[in-house]
Write a protein that binds this DNA or RNA. Structure first.
Length: 548
RNA sequence: GCGCCCAUAGCUCAAUUGGAUAGAGCGUUUGACUACGAAUCAAAAGGUUAGAGGUUCAACUCCUCUUGGGCGCGCCA
């Protein structure tokens, strides 16, 4: 929170200064300087302003420094020009101690906002077809989507997590047929299994269940039974991955359910577009005029044989999202769907919303590797490696942390053997160890009677302690960065850095000593460390055990 | 052929969205446990940020081209 406070104050002071120089709406940034620079924050305003008013950055910097020292004396105790014209600021220690008290008193609410405007956000992710168990690629989407939702919630947004269920279409018929053939085979019939059907053993398991329940072939709805079992598996795998959805939205409800006039939501959506002139008839088909909103070409909504395309459902689905009052939609897609982005963006604009109302996050696909050899991912091959399998091997915490270590944009090689090997050396343990160490000290300190619950924090005077407190306060900056970039992956880097800072502090500064006052102050410090580590890991969906 | 994403240490990836000497983990080398947990710390080695131009006070970051990789281009889902 320190950086935000400082930035606001500087914007006021420097904005006014810029205005006097004839520059309106002056924008600059407040940053942390590199480690070799002895300062808490760096401001680049003088360099940017000097260019606009064609003067020397150092003279502008000198004038700005005078203003800062005058107006921010409660906050800043030193300001100096450095390098090409950076203004380097030193923050008063008392500001840091105040932040420490805030962390301890607000605990898991630290950095949180009660509400954040009226923005109602829907995060839609995973949305894997219910034709088989989740694979590792879905895991990446699940980890990113879930953690981003947690971050946005912490920032006060009203976030709803939704899973879109593609339970309509040809694939469902193939699925039903796959189970049916296995059912017949298990009953002793000589029926060949078509090569393009779902091969996995889970299909046999569904058939086995139906037989054990005595279901006859006539009374069984194979599609319904298959989806039921597969969804149960998906839901349970996600739960093991600490992902729970607020809503599961079935495509069937917009494709099949009819209103009083016998129309489906898809019918209605297409009629709406037709009436607005954003859809038209050609060659016996209904086309979406997506090209006029930036798509390469127009797309078919309804085939000439009268059947809707997948896109038609998707248009109706996004219309439905807006109708439910969501003003910001976040979709997480595998990068193989990127060709779809332009047409959905077009559709959002046709529905009367700015294109910023939809944020599509593409995550690059995970390439599975086992012992250096590419591993199959196809749901139909029967040799896929499931998310569950990986969670069972490396654990939920390591698996989530691993996925969130990378920006969504980067391709990711997931070597299963490597992941297993890392189980005791993974960075996640490095971070969790901080919490374990702190709690170990707390257990030890219970035996003492000389601890002051309201200690003098100004005793925290070493360099290691100061750096640690600053690092704790940067929690809020990391939240802001995740919001700005719409990606939670910055938190893994932040937590690793915080853990590093803590372990260094631990080596240099013994917490429990003969000095009661210092011991009390340091206990408060590590209490704050625990708060931040737990909050941060919580946002990633990773646990923070007190013992390991 | 067209479009999107990517290329950073031996490996897997970061880099505060244009800032100062590009950082972590793993791996390699060398040290540190008779006081709070050594799942740790200290130190070393490792880089022309794929290549070439350009914009800028400042470029891993923006623009152009080249090379190399992933993905997508259906009245499929």
């Amino acid at each position: 929170m320190i950086k935000q406070q400082l930035t606001e104050k500087l914007e006021e002071i420097i904005g006014k200064y810029a205005k006097e120089k004839g520059v309106e709406n002056f924008v600059f940034s407040v940053e942390e300087p590199p480690k070799n620079i002895d300062a808490d924050f760096a401001v680049n305003a003088a360099m940017l302003l000097a260019k606009k008013i064609k003067s020397n950055p150092r003279t502008a910097a000198a004038e700005i420094i005078d203003l800062i020292l005058k107006d921010l004396s409660a906050f800043v105790n030193k300001a100096e020009i450095a390098g090409a014209g950076f203004i380097n600021l030193h923050i008063k220690n008392e500001v840091l101690f105040e932040e420490l008290r805030k962390i301890i008193s607000e605990k898991d609410k630290y950095g949180a906002k009660e509400t954040n405007g009226k923005e109602k956000i829907m995060a839609e992710f995973v949305s894997a077809n219910p034709t088989g168990p989740l694979h590792i690629g879905h895991g990446r989407g699940a980890a990113i989507g879930d953690s981003l939702s947690r971050v946005l919630k912490h920032l006060g947004y009203d976030v709803s997590k939704e899973y879109y269920l593609n339970d309509v279409g040809n694939q469902m018929l193939v699925l039903a047929e796959s189970v049916k053939v296995r059912y017949l085979q298990l009953k002793g019939n000589e029926v060949p299994f078509p090569p393009d059907h779902y091969q996995g053993d889970y299909i046999k398991d569904i058939a086995k269940r139906l037989i054990s329940e005595g279901k006859s072939i006539e009374e069984t709805d194979f599609k319904k039974e298959a989806v039921k079992d597969i969804l149960a598996t998906i839901e349970s795998d996600l739960k093991d991955f600490a992902v729970e959805f607020d809503n599961w939205f079935s495509e069937g409800t917009i494709a099949f359910d009819k209103d009083s006039e016998g129309k489906t939501a898809v019918d209605r959506a297409c009629e709406y577009l037709l009436s607005k002139g954003d859809a038209y008839l050609k060659d016996g088909a209904l086309w979406l005029a997506s090209a006029k909103f930036g798509d390469d070409k127009d797309r078919v909504l309804k085939r000439s044989d009268g059947r809707y395309t997948y896109l038609a459902s998707d248009v109706a689905y996004h219309k439905n999202k807006f109708e439910r009052g969501f003003t910001k939609l976040v979709n997480l897609w595998g990068a193989d769907h990127h060709g779809y982005v332009a047409r959905i963006n077009a559709c959002v604009q046709m529905l009367g919303f700015p294109k910023e109302a939809l944020k599509i996050i593409l995550y690059q696909l995970v390439s599975l590797v086992r012992n250096g050899q590419p591993a199959a991912m196809s749901t139909r091959s029967g040799e896929f490696i499931t998310l569950k399998e990986v969670i069972d091997e490396v654990g939920k915490d390591a698996c989530r942390f691993f996925f969130l270590l990378r920006a969504p944009d980067s391709q990711l090689d997931f070597d299963l053997e490597l992941a297993k090997k890392q189980s005791s050396e993974n960075p996640v343990f490095y971070v969790q160890y901080v919490n374990a160490r702190c709690n170990s000290i707390f257990r030890e300190s219970k035996n003492r009677t000389d601890i002051n619950e309201n200690p003098d924090l100004s005793l925290l005077g070493t360099k290691e302690e100061r750096v640690l407190i600053k690092q704790l306060a940067a929690f809020c900056d990391t939240l802001a960065l995740c919001e700005k970039t719409m990606s939670p992956h910055h938190f893994t880097a932040y937590l690793i850095e915080l853990a590093d800072t803590y372990h260094k502090f631990y080596e240099k500064c013994r917490v429990l000593s003969d000095d009661s006052a210092l011991t009390s102050a340091r206990l408060k410090l590590i209490e704050a460390v625990c708060v931040i580590i737990k909050n941060g890991l919580g946002l990633l969906g990773v646990s923070a055990p007190e013992k390991m």
